[in-house]
Design a protein around this nucleic acid. Structure first.
Lengths: 152, 152
DNA sequence: ATATAGGGTTCGGATTCCGAACGTAGCCTC
DNA sequence: GAGGCTACGTTCGGAATCCGAACCCTATAT
């Protein structure tokens, strides 16, 4: 199998991975969540080559994660890339990566602190059972075939 | 900046992304969580080339996500790759991807159902404020510089 | 009309990926 | 004790991808 074929897999991890799984896309999204919208700003803040940035942004737009739209600056009309609802829903993915990175790859302490605007507390991810409410770890759960697999 | 330099960024998203951000690593980890341990089984279940698999597994071992260890089969000694504690802690990352994939990329329904072994319920990720306990979305939180950034 | 800025595209060269072929270390069988 | 098989890689050349630099196009702004 070529890597490109991963996107066709009937697997809800493989398909997002095919879209997000390259060295740039995740940091592009990080910037998008931090408020960056313009091509130039992505480019200069990341140092990515313009051709690759163009291609990646295009892919994200095509996938529906970003929306490209013109907007009026003080002086002129520009384009900007904004997260769609679908894109905003990637927030837990980024948060999960960040929590893991903070725990295992930040020798000098977490470079960012996340703040809940409402109360100033710190949001954290919890994997909780929707039935019993207990916190669940990797060892406490198992995977079973679901409806999408039977449809094959 | 070359893509390889991303790993040096002082950012808890960029560093994990540099390790996990390629087309194969995430699906390799998916297989590891689903119980696959042997080189041959990774290779045949994914169709990845042996050279790349070897390189990826080596990187994950070096990073501390997997541990390579010999073990005694019924007949002989083999090697296997197992998730370390650090690797098991990637579970939320995979779950976040899966939830997103189920929502947006599974036209025929989720291919997998996750089951809490304890009660049979379905574990889901929640981003909750550790102070007020409210559920938090992308728009309800903001990023501030943390200790690791000041140490620069 | 000329200059500047934003947002790309094009183009070679460098890097990475890939599949197929080969290497090797145990065991098992004859 | 000579093959054979299995598990686990490594090596190799060609194909795909990445990269930076240079160029292009459209709007203002002067």
């Amino acid at each position: 199998m070529r890597a490109a074929d991963i996107a066709e897999e009937r697997c809800s991890i493989a398909r997002p991975a095919a879209l997000l799984g390259d060295r740039w896309t995740l940091v592009i999204l990080r910037q998008a969540f931090s408020g960056i919208k313009r091509f130039e700003d992505f480019q200069s803040s990341l140092g990515i080559s313009r051709s690759l940035l163009s291609e990646r942004l295009g892919k994200l737009v095509e996938a529906g994660v970003l929306r490209r739209e013109p907007y009026k600056d003080a002086v002129r009309t520009r384009d900007r890339y904004r997260l769609t609802e679908m894109g905003l829903d990637l927030y837990p993915v980024l948060m999960a990566l960040r929590e893991w990175g903070d725990r295992y790859m930040a020798e000098e302490g977490p470079p960012l602190r996340i703040r809940h605007k409402g109360c100033g507390g710190e949001p954290t991810l919890e994997l909780r059972c929707s039935k019993c409410g207990d916190q669940v770890g990797a060892r406490d759960s198992e995977a079973l075939p679901g409806p999408g697999l039977k449809a094959a």
